[in-house]
Amino acid sequence: MSDTPLLSVRALTKRFGGRVACHDVSFDLWPGEVLGIVGESGSGKTTLLNCLAGRLEPDAGSVSYETASMGTVDVHRLSEARRRLLARTEWGFVNQDARDGLRMGVSAGANIGERLMAIGARHYGEIRGSASEWLGRVEIDLDRLDDRPTTFSGGMRQRLQIARNLVSNPRLVFMDEPTGGLDVSVQARILDLLRGLVDRFHLSAVLVTHDLGVARLLTHRLMVMQGGAVIEQGLTDQVLDDPQHAYTQMLVASILPV
């Protein structure tokens, strides 16, 4: 087991005006771990995720990331340029709405190729080859390579966004409700895809979801948030099968059986 966490979060707090969105959150994410953040709407999950990924500036606390090549960095003390470099080389970010994570005006192939060019790929044939390979991995027909995502269904767009994020071989992927708003059959396909990719490429990930079934399937560990604070954490099966906190017990008891 590795002795250095990939991500180390200490006393992270974020306020919007007088309202605390996320209060005193601390945890370590270890290489190969998938951490789920669950809780109801407004509990601070997405705010926390955005602070971790450097998209929002916290009011207090720190996020340290163990980079592949430049040692440990404090995400919020990096220059904007360094942070952007990190975001497109070592990280991925899968948005709930694929339109926020894709460039809708260019082809599917270009959406994937752009990530590769951002990390220095220049050979057109190789870029197109990788793009085709990834379209195949996310089960999009190759003859759609030159089509724009505006012509894709919601599920296809989400799979394209995943391909765009993973083509550059990130070490850490942030996901905000990656299957939210999709049909259950499409959701199953994306969950299966993510599960396979996480295993195959030894990804570490932080996944925000309000769906405990998704959390059960994809995550190793869970943090439960309520009112901006982490009220319970542990192994996913511990939290779901033996919930300790009143709020977690209520959440688990509210799952509709099929």
Partner: peptide, 9 residues
């Protein structure tokens, strides 16, 4: 049994 597996705490 579940406690032994670390499923129950």
């Amino acid at each position: 049994l579940r406690s032994l597996y670390g499923n129950y705490r």
